[in-house]
Amino acid sequence: QRITLKDYAMRFGQTKTAKDLGVYQSAINKAIHAGRKIFLTINADGSVYAEEVKDGEVKPFPS
């Protein structure tokens, strides 16, 4: 399943989102408010992988 960072954070909370991605909650808040195009893939085992689309390139998040 693929979902935006904002939607994932709204569904699970910023604290869990940060923990799942290995970053601080403040980084999640800042990324959402900056309007960054970050998409999360939720794997069947429950693990989460995030990618950011920037300038036409897709890069892992966090980099």
Rank of each mutant, 00 (worst) to 15 (best):
L40V: 15
T41D: 05
D55Q: 08
A34T: 12
D7H: 05
R36W: 07
I32C: 03
D20R: 06
F61D: 02
D7P: 00
Q25L: 10
F39Q: 04
G35I: 03
D20W: 03
K54N: 13
K19E: 10
L5C: 02
P62G: 07
R36V: 05
A44F: 09
K30S: 14
K37H: 14
N29F: 11
T41V: 14
D55W: 10
S63V: 10
E52I: 04
Q14A: 14
N43V: 08
I3H: 07
L21K: 00
S26D: 11
Q1M: 13
R36L: 13
A31C: 05
P62A: 04
P60S: 08
L21W: 01
D7E: 14
T15L: 13
G46K: 05
Q1P: 11
T4L: 08
F12T: 03
K16E: 06
V48N: 01
R36A: 07
L40G: 00
H33F: 10
S63H: 11
P60A: 08
E52S: 03
G56C: 07
A27G: 06
Q1H: 09
Y8M: 01
G22R: 06
I28E: 00
V23P: 02
P60G: 06
V48I: 13
T4G: 10
Y8P: 01
K37F: 09
A44S: 12
Y24P: 15
K16H: 05
K6D: 08
V58E: 05
V53Y: 14
Y24A: 15
I3Q: 06
G22N: 10
E51D: 07
E51T: 08
A44W: 08
G56K: 08
L5F: 01
F61N: 02
T4S: 14
G22A: 05
P60E: 07
I42S: 04
K37A: 13
K6G: 09
I28V: 10
A50I: 03
V58F: 11
D45H: 05
V48S: 03
Y8A: 03
V58M: 10
A50F: 03
A18Q: 03
F61G: 02
E51H: 09
Q1W: 05
M10I: 14
P60N: 06
Y49A: 09
D55I: 06
G35W: 04
A18Y: 02
D45Y: 04
T17M: 03
S26V: 10
T41Q: 08
G56W: 06
G13H: 01
D7R: 04
P62V: 04
D45V: 04
Y24I: 12
N29A: 15
L21A: 02
G22K: 08
Q25C: 09
D45A: 06
L40C: 09
K16L: 03
A27F: 14
A44Q: 11
E57M: 13
F12Q: 04
A9G: 03
L5I: 06
D20E: 07
V53M: 11
Q14Y: 11
V53A: 07
I42T: 06
A27K: 07
L40A: 03
L5R: 00
A27Y: 13
K59Y: 15
N43K: 11
T4N: 08
F61E: 02
P62I: 04
G46R: 04
A27P: 02
G56L: 06
G56N: 10
L5V: 02
L5Q: 00
S63L: 11
D45M: 05
K16Q: 10
F61A: 02
E51W: 05
I28S: 00
I3E: 06
V48G: 01
I38H: 00
F61S: 02
D55Y: 08
V58Y: 10
R36T: 06
E51Q: 07
I32G: 01
I42R: 05
M10T: 13
I38C: 01
A50G: 13
K16D: 03
I42N: 03
P62D: 05
K16V: 05
I42P: 04
V48D: 00
P60M: 08
I38V: 09
L5K: 00
A18C: 04
I32Q: 02
Q1I: 14
S47W: 06
A34C: 11
I38N: 00
G56V: 04
I32M: 07
L5Y: 01
D7T: 04
K16T: 06
D45R: 03
D55V: 06
Y24V: 14
D55R: 08
R11W: 11
T4D: 06
G56D: 09
N43G: 10
K30C: 15
V23M: 10
E57I: 14
S26A: 10
V58Q: 06
F61Q: 02
Q14T: 15
Q25S: 10
K59E: 09
I42W: 06
S26T: 11
Y8V: 00
T4P: 14
K59F: 15
G13W: 02
A50L: 03
E57L: 13
D7A: 07
D45K: 04
K59P: 03
N43Y: 12
Q25N: 09
A18R: 02
R2G: 08
A31L: 14
A9W: 09
V48P: 02
P60T: 07
F61H: 02
E52H: 03
Y49N: 09
K59V: 14
H33D: 13
Q14I: 15
N29M: 13
S63N: 14
A18L: 02
Y49F: 13
T15F: 11
L5G: 00
I38T: 00
A50N: 00
Y49W: 14
P60H: 07
K59H: 14
P60W: 05
L5H: 00
K54I: 15
D7C: 09
R36M: 08
A34E: 14
D7Y: 05
A18T: 03
S26F: 08
Y24F: 13
R36K: 08
G22V: 03
A9S: 08
G56Y: 06
Q1C: 14
Q1E: 15
A18S: 08
N43L: 12
D55C: 10
K19F: 09
F61T: 02
G56E: 07
L40Q: 00
I42L: 09
I3Y: 12
I38L: 02
G13N: 02
D55G: 10
S26P: 10
T17S: 04
I3D: 03
I32W: 02
I28F: 02
Q14H: 13
Q14M: 15
V48R: 03
V23R: 02
T15D: 15
E51R: 05
F12I: 04
E57W: 10
N43C: 12
A44V: 12
L21T: 03
G46V: 02
F39W: 14
E57V: 15
I28D: 02
T15V: 13
G56T: 07
Q1F: 08
N43I: 07
T41W: 12
N43H: 10
N29L: 12
I3K: 03
G13M: 01
I32N: 02
N43M: 12
V23W: 07
M10E: 15
